[in-house]
Amino acid sequence: MYDIAIIGGGPAGLTAAIYAGRSKRKTILFTGSNIGGQISLTFQVENYPGFPESITGPDLVEKMTAQAKKFGAEIDERTVTGVDLSSHPYRLMIGEEVIVAKSVIIATGSNNRLLGLESEERFMGRGVFVCATCDAVIYEDLKVVAVGGGDSAVQEALDITKYAREVEIVHRGKEFTASNYLKKEALKNERIKIRFNAVVEEILGEDYVSGVRIRDTLTGEETVIETDGVLIAIGWTPNSELFKGQLELMDNGGIVADDVRTSKQGVFVAGDINDDKYRQLVTACGSGCRAAIEVDRFLARG
């Protein structure tokens, strides 16, 4: 039996594993296939204290993993397929195998929210993309429609203009929710066009994306915009599927909790799964640390 089972191998889970391992608690962390989580998709991490020369996301994950292992945490790359939190000790299912633990830290993070269109799924990787850092270069001299109006949509639209000849931002609201600085940058960029009060109804094309059909939410009028790429940047969905029926969930899919403490004794939550406000590397690490300290107190009480 483990003292602590951590689900999720991003910065929150890894920080919790470092603390738990260092407290000599028998610890296992399941990364699943998405090793390192969202930070693995960041090329240069420039705002993590202690790395003035910047560090790549994957390198940082590698170092955190090594640090967790050094303190004795087991890192398992398999995916947790089910949990049973109805009785203590808690049980985690990995396919056929069952792991038993006295406490659980949920650090499963969040994924890009998608529009939920059938055409979006069909064209994923064929013109539809969610990672501008990865795929912007593919749109040299082409046109991209960026869907969304928050910080990440506007920042990524600006990044794409380094390559694309035009980026048209389609946003359902009547103004951006992005920060003032980004708003101004977008408004003065000649390569950016903006369409407010518009929603994407369908992504069009044969083998690759060739356009999007949008609807004006005020007039109901539909228009087709020709485009080579569609960036989806409409926010995040907490990865809480595994805990449906086991823990109380919020409307946005996050887990009901008082900071890192869920409603179940010995079950804690950390990182972006419950953060729609800050979503920083350092805040994820911070909550991973708090969860590990709470776990330690829980285990000490016996």
């Binding site: 064929r126 990865c134 593919i138 749109y139 040299e140 001299d141 082409l142 083998d207 690759y208």
Partner: peptide, 15 residues
């Protein structure tokens, strides 16, 4: 830029 345009013509949409 030539490399990028070449890749796009060849159907590359992701790296």
């Amino acid at each position: 830029k030539e490399n990028r345009k070449f890749a796009i013509r060849g159907g590359v949409r992701s790296t």
